[in-house]
């Protein structure tokens, strides 16, 4: 793996394809080597916008079939009945299709937000939601930087819905439905490590076809859904202000200070209490 990567940098250096990209890759956390998260690589240069992924997703999760289709200028969104959508964008390299769904962040904001661990990053990689734990507080929705979890507002027993990378199917050794049914091979399933290598290989072998960045390599601390694009990602509707550090890291400072507060504040208060008490004892009788 490390040799692979060094070779890759060499190639990059020779072609001078993107210094910034190389820097980013070096800054990557070591976690990738230790964990074998399963992941999906989506290559929008291959996607033909056929919506097979949408239809198969609806079928395996018992959701209504999609009735609209990707259209330039129309932003279709995921919702409680639709866990993935394909949108079309008019870009500097012509029309490009983009599939969107949960990014399956390596350190998901939704999972850190959830107070019951209903949202859970499985050790296999998919981020799943567990109905019997969830209390429906919707804090996961507040926290997800990609606005992914959706809520069934019109149900008395509502669910949080989002892509779960077909976790049940994976458990049975099957591929996620979208990957299995993509006729253009725009979706590939594998370990995150394999797919990172594959994505880099594609960029290096075909530098003209790709914008030299793998979205999801570092975004939000790295995700288990990886994207390749022919154009800069802001042209195809991605938020570019997503930070590269993980989102749960933003609350670390607060959470770490809690035990300290629990020790310090009571002792300070008791100290003050003692001090003021001895002053008052002369004149007053307090218990």
């Amino acid at each position: 793996m490390s040799i692979d990567r060094r070779n890759f940098f060499k190639v990059l250096g020779v072609t001078g394809a993107g210094l910034a990209f190389g820097k980013q890759a070096q800054a990557e956390p070591a976690g990738e080597e230790e964990t074998e998260f399963k992941a999906i690589l989506y290559d929008s240069t291959r996607c033909v916008g056929c919506q097979s992924c949408e239809f198969s997703c609806a079928e395996v999760h018992n959701l209504p079939e999609p009735e609209d289709f990707p259209e330039v200028g129309v932003l279709r969104k995921t919702n409680e009945n639709r866990r993935t959508v394909v949108n079309a964008y008019d870009t500097s390299k012509g029309e490009v299709y983009v599939k969107r769904q949960c990014m399956h962040c390596n350190q998901p904001a939704c999972g850190a937000a959830c107070l019951t661990q209903a949202m859970l990053k499985t050790k296999e990689g998919p981020v799943i939601w567990r109905e019997n734990k969830c209390m429906g507080c919707r804090y996961c929705m507040i926290s997800c930087p990609f606005d992914i979890p959706k809520f069934e507002y019109n149900s008395p027993n509502p669910k949080i819905t989002k892509c779960n990378m077909c976790f049940e199917r994976q458990q049975e050794g099957q591929l996620p439905a979208c990957v299995e049914n993509c006729p253009a091979e725009a979706l590939v399933f594998g370990t995150r490590r394999e797919l990172m290598a594959e994505a880099r290989r594609r960029i290096v072998e075909n530098p003209d076809a790709y914008y030299p960045h793998i979205y999801g390599e570092n975004e939000a601390g790295g995700t288990s859904f990886l994207y390749l694009s022919p154009v800069p990602f802001e042209e195809i509707g991605f938020r570019t202000n997503i930070q590269n550090a993980s989102y749960p890291a933003l609350t670390k400072g607060f959470l770490y200070s809690v035990p300290a507060v629990f020790v310090l504040v009571p002792s300070v208060l008791l100290g003050i209490h003692k001090a003021t008490k001895s002053n008052l004892d002369k004149t007053n009788n307090y218990d």
Partner: peptide, 16 residues
């Protein structure tokens, strides 16, 4: 759930 402790989302701010 977060109180009887079958599921401690202990690194959740909301849990605290």
């Amino acid at each position: 759930n977060p109180i009887i402790g079958n599921n401690f989302g202990a690194n959740s701010v909301l849990f605290l």
